[in-house]
Design a protein around this nucleic acid. Structure first.
Lengths: 352, 352
DNA sequence: ATGAAAGCGCTAACAT
DNA sequence: ATGTTAGCGCTTTCAT
């Protein structure tokens, strides 16, 4: 905001009217006569006048800005989600302030507080770590907020939220493997305390249970705490051999990056997918289409997750009542899953 | 910005001082006695006071906000670049307004104008389409601006810019193929009028020329105008067979997505890479490591591109003089390139 | 060391 | 139909 810019004052002077007349004219207030209005607009154009949104915000108590917090912009999943948000925001003439939390609680809070200082009209938080115990600080920040795939295990009821049905997704994945004839099905997950991971494990277990397949502890592997999209791949790579050694013929992975890691490990170990082992991912990022074999996965409607979330926020801003939403993921069958090879002890494991 | 929030007025009332004293105390102005200062800060804390950044901006003529325009957030290349920007901005306590241009000139201008209205302190534009003829409108928008990989063929000299050396990158790619023994080398590019594509073609041609390899028109294929990261893949897929039929043994692709498309086409056509055909990409997006075979490519330092650009902008804001930068890409050899198969007419094509 | 007052650029209630 | 004035919440002279 360097030098002095043209203000309505300047235009008023040149037009020989008061600054309020200019203000009215520029905003098509019907009180101003057409001729004066056009004259003023003409002068404004000639002087390259651009209204100062900061001054308008101070007066109007609205910034036409929303804050968005994601764990990482470089994560292909969130990139899609943000794309969806941006599209809706843009159509509604809202600007988007973007901030990354890197899955860190402190950074998430810091981002939200910064948004609050800047008086954003609303806030969108993806993969939030905020639970009930923190909600107090935040309810004081009385800014309309929508959470996307909140990861707090004790998510406060009072918040607005849009969520993917992780439990359903996991069941879709595992039931797909079961329907192909697999009975030795493993899970590779992440060891952070995310709700997603919990729900996906639950879905995995329930799918097995409903099919009468016993759960084996050695068929579940979880990584350590720290996570980035890059080392999700490493998780898959490292966990794979153990599970394969333990005899699984199919693996459901926490997400696509983990699945890609598993795929990579298979290539190294000479395990052919899907002949020797079937792999199913979660998310539906573009990458899954380009690996070999292409990845069977449970897709989250990422773009919709973002655009619906933004739409919910818009509704909130217009004081409409908004219902929380739960979106259903869907299975996309590709090359990484197939029926298991027939061998000695196959599909007869239906007894308890 | 819904209801009334706590202001310094409220604190002043409660502390029995004037609002200017509160303002000073909160900002550690040495004029205020330590005891009063602490008392005021205490009250502010108790009342959950959060300064109104909008009011501060209006007074200080600074918003501590930068605007960023990229073609698409969902593009893995820009996602990395933005990540780099965000990191530097965050450290400098700058907020980032993000907007997508979708490679559309109008949208790019609209985003910049919106940033100007909001009085951002600086602007970063990636893949700008703005050329000399438009620079007039924008020089009036006297906001410090840095362009990243500007795509205007007639980029105005006066702008600040950081650019990857596309020409060098292309030479690296093609010289790599030549050093492996290839002499029949093709190029798959994009038909938009981007500077990158021009420079990469130039580098491709120069590398051939320097090696004394004749150029063959049929070894260069360009796509039509419209581009998204998704249909860059399609470009690679569609162009591949023609080039292969025309006898090339190595192909340099405009970017990694095009290269992935080419790889996919090879799989479908039963062309084995790198035995029958070598493929080299450009960009260095993560995806390249996960496809089969992994992609040899010319890497742009994406994260640095973003972080340096933001650093240049910070310097500009502090009125330092900043030099334009040209970053060098570097070759990363992976699985998709190898020596061509020996056959009848091999590396003897060194005569003019 | 502290308060009063002006002003950042705008909108809107209140005159006329 | 237009001008005058106040005020959004803050910082910063200028008094004292």
């Amino acid at each position: 905001m360097s030098k002095r810019r043209i203000s309505i004052e300047d235009i008023a002077r040149k037009a020989g009217v008061s600054h309020s007349t200019v203000s009215r004219a520029l905003r098509d207030n019907p009180l101003i006569s057409a001729s004066v209005r056009e004259q003023i607009k003409q002068i404004a154009r000639e002087m390259n006048y651009v209204p100062n949104a900061i001054a308008q915000s101070l007066q109007n108590q609205r910034t036409d800005t929303v804050g968005v917090v994601v764990t990482s912009i470089a994560d292909p999943f969130f990139a899609e989600v943000v794309e969806g948000m941006e599209k809706v925001a843009n159509k509604a003439n809202l600007s988007v302030l973007l901030s990354a939390s890197h899955r860190d609680f402190e950074q998430e809070i810091a981002a939200i507080e910064s948004f609050y200082r800047r008086r954003v009209d609303g806030i969108l938080v993806a993969d939030s770590r905020i639970g009930k115990h923190h909600s107090k600080q935040l309810t004081q920040i009385a800014v309309p907020t929508v959470f996307i795939n909140s990861q707090a295990t004790d998510q406060p009821e009072s918040f607005h939220a849009i969520t993917i049905d992780d439990y359903l997704g996991a069941r879709l994945a595992v039931e797909h493997l079961i329907s192909l004839g697999h009975t030795k099905i493993g899970y590779i997950g992440v060891g952070d305390n995310s709700k997603s991971n919990h729900q996906r494990i639950r879905g995995y277990q329930m799918a097995l249970e409903l099919a009468g397949i016993p759960r084996i502890t050695d068929w579940v592997a979880l990584s350590d705490k720290d996570r980035t999209s890059k080392n999700d791949v490493v998780v898959g790579q490292q966990m794979l051999s153990k599970l394969f050694t333990n005899g699984v013929t199919g693996i459901f992975c926490y997400n696509d990056m983990v699945a890609v890691g598993a795929l990579l490990a298979c290539q190294e170990l000479g395990i052919s997918v899907p002949q020797d082992l079937s792999i199913v991912g979660f998310d539906g990022i573009a990458l899954g289409r380009y690996v070999t074999p292409s990845l069977t996965t449970v897709c989250q409607p990422m773009f919709e997750l973002g655009s619906y979330a933004m739409q919910m926020l818009l509704d909130l801003l217009q004081e409409k009542t908004v219902e929380n939403r739960v979106l259903s993921p869907f299975l996309v069958k590709r090359g990484s899953s197939a029926a298991p090879k027939k061998n000695y002890n196959n599909t007869s494991a239906s007894g308890t």
